[in-house]
Computed example of a mutant assay.
Amino acid sequence: MSDEKTADARSTDALGRYLKSVRLGLDLSLRNVEEATGKEVSNAYLSQLETGKINKPSPHILYALSTALGVPYETLMERAGYIAPSKDRPEGAKHGRAATFAIDNLTQDEEQALLDHLAYVRWHRNK
């Protein structure tokens, strides 16, 4: 696989994992998100996004999801590969995602682990 295709697969995987983490953190089902988007994003489509079966959603879909999930549109656009990733920011710049922007230079895996933990904490709190 070429470096470009590998980068695209990582980006798409990051988008799917991120969407699922946020959705679960908000204790929303796939159908809840479908309703929150005014049925612009079906639960089946969202499931395919989360599992990586759909790898390049349109900016329109990303906007609907950002509104429904309360996450920055720019974050979804970056994770979908439409805009430059934050790693291209100058050395020492804070990345500003999640609650992590007070911590310097997290890897994508470290950030995802924090988001997963946050989703668990929110889920546990709402039980």
Rank of each mutant, 00 (worst) to 15 (best):
E40Q: 15
H124Y: 14
N32F: 06
P90N: 10
D27G: 04
A98H: 05
Q48D: 06
S29R: 09
L114T: 07
V33L: 13
A84S: 13
K53L: 04
L26F: 02
G81M: 02
Y18H: 10
T12G: 06
Y73L: 07
G81S: 09
G96I: 03
Y45K: 04
P85I: 03
R97A: 03
T100D: 00
V33G: 11
H95Q: 10
D116S: 10
S2E: 03
P85R: 04
K39H: 15
G81W: 00
Q108A: 10
E111M: 04
M77I: 07
E111F: 15
N43L: 12
L46W: 11
A9G: 03
L118H: 04
L15F: 08
T75S: 03
V41Q: 04
I54A: 03
D13R: 11
K127I: 10
A9Y: 13
R122S: 12
Q108R: 05
E91Q: 12
A44N: 09
Q112A: 10
T75D: 00
A36D: 12
T67R: 11
Y120S: 10
T51F: 00
F101Q: 07
Q108T: 07
A14H: 13
A7C: 01
K20G: 07
L106H: 05
H95M: 10
D116T: 09
E35T: 01
F101S: 07
T37I: 13
S21G: 15
A9R: 15
Y73R: 02
T37P: 11
I83M: 06
T75C: 03
A64P: 15
S2K: 08
Y18D: 02
N105P: 01
L46C: 10
A7F: 07
W123R: 08
G96F: 01
T12E: 09
I54P: 01
L49D: 08
A64C: 14
A93V: 09
T100S: 00
A80Y: 03
A102H: 12
L28E: 07
V121G: 07
E40R: 14
A113G: 02
T107A: 04
L26W: 02
Q112R: 06
H60K: 11
A93G: 02
T51Y: 01
L26V: 01
P57W: 08
L118V: 02
E78P: 01
A44F: 14
R23T: 03
